Amino acid sequence: MEAYADVELRELQLYNPDASVEGKLVPKKKDGVLYIQVTELRCGSVIVACTFDHRIANAYSGNMFLVAWAEMGHSENISLHPSFQRSLLNPRRPGSCDASLDDMYVPLSTLPPPSSNGMPRADPVISRIYYVTAENITRLQDLASSKGCRRTKLESLGAYLWQIVAKSEMDSTKRCKMGVVVDGRTRLCDGKNSVANYFGNVLSIPFGEETVEELVKKPLSWVADTVHEYVHVAAEKEHFLGLIDWVEAHWPEPALAKIYCKGIEDGSAFVRQRFPVEKLNFGWGRPVFGSYHFPLGGESGYVMPMPSVTQEGNWVVYVHLLKGQIEVLEEVAGDVFKPLTPEYLGLHGDATKFSKQTSFPSDAFFWGSS
């Protein structure tokens, strides 16, 4: 689809994608696999937005497609050819499923029917986009590390967000969950067959559960250690081999990660996925900004940090949480999670005069949606 919007790129409220993007710049998914909308703005900038079916591919696969698309636009060779060799994920004979997988996934048929009274939620789920500076990421990593164990940036930021979500709860005895999406491609490589270029879904979502009181009162290093423990278990090859066997054992019954099941709606999933904005040059210059827009249905949260293309070392963080959780986030961590603004992207000047210079990064804006 081609579209035109009588607005300049610098006027878009990217901090609030619910208002500026949803239903306007991103095409709605119907019955197909992929939908693309290209929107030209008054200043000459271009927005490319894609919506794809998550049953076909995860974000990693989507990135492969986007990069290949840009390379083909330059008549370049595709740097990473996708593999559709489904046998790479064949189950073992006989299969072997660890009991812990039953705590992570559940067949849909075992879930209670959704209850709805037709009334909108008092505390809806909303989306916001922030940026976090490299200095703040390093500071959180220092606070999250102890006893000589250096926690990763992902573990550190995830632990920090888990504490913030817990602070939004009034009941200190309530249990709060946090999951981390782990890609299994690198874990399944065996030296003979590589799944690095496998096109499809190779994900697992381990999660932890602690009381609100513990998460709020314990130091960040304790929370980060907890995140590390449950992520480490699911980061092994055996975990993904077992998950393949678990899916086969329940075939053809579809299943759902328990972090998203009704009854544990206080859970949130956290993932770091590299969005290759710097490689998405379709011929008019490197994009000034790229992000996923992933407004899940239901009441579960979702947080996705990505490297910033504007400031090296910074992260752009897409946040999809309950409105009350967002309010607490901005109140207690406003110095860390700063709203994404046109000024941060370098769009505070006259955008029109830059729109014809293909070397200037604001010539293009890319938005990924699934």
Results as ranks from 00 to 15, higher is better:
203 L>C: 04
215 L>F: 04
187 R>N: 08
235 A>H: 14
217 K>Y: 12
197 N>S: 15
202 V>Y: 00
218 K>N: 14
229 E>L: 06
212 V>K: 06
183 D>T: 09
187 R>I: 07
201 N>T: 04
231 V>G: 02
232 H>Y: 04
179 G>H: 07
234 A>R: 01
219 P>V: 15
244 I>F: 14
222 W>T: 03
230 Y>E: 01
202 V>R: 01
230 Y>G: 04
240 F>W: 08
187 R>E: 13
228 H>E: 14
178 M>H: 03
194 S>C: 10
202 V>C: 07
202 V>M: 05
223 V>F: 12
204 S>W: 02
229 E>I: 05
217 K>C: 05
241 L>Y: 14
234 A>H: 07
232 H>D: 15
179 G>Q: 07
222 W>S: 12
204 S>H: 01
242 G>N: 15
222 W>K: 11
217 K>E: 14
183 D>W: 02
182 V>N: 06
222 W>C: 09
215 L>Q: 04
228 H>Y: 14
186 T>A: 12
208 G>R: 00
197 N>D: 14
234 A>N: 15
204 S>P: 04
245 D>H: 08
193 N>K: 14
186 T>D: 05
244 I>K: 13
180 V>P: 05
203 L>Y: 00
221 S>Y: 06
193 N>W: 08
196 A>N: 11
176 C>N: 11
186 T>G: 06
205 I>R: 04
211 T>C: 02
186 T>R: 11
225 D>E: 14
195 V>D: 05
212 V>N: 04
217 K>W: 09
179 G>T: 05
226 T>H: 13
211 T>S: 05
218 K>L: 11
241 L>T: 05
205 I>D: 00
207 F>D: 07
229 E>N: 12
237 K>I: 06
238 E>N: 14
176 C>T: 12
198 Y>C: 06
233 V>G: 12
179 G>V: 03
216 V>P: 09
218 K>Y: 10
188 L>Q: 10
224 A>V: 11
211 T>E: 09
178 M>A: 13
220 L>Q: 13
191 G>D: 11
192 K>V: 13
198 Y>F: 15
207 F>I: 03
189 C>A: 13
234 A>Y: 15
219 P>F: 05
235 A>I: 10
187 R>C: 02
237 K>A: 12
182 V>R: 01
187 R>D: 00
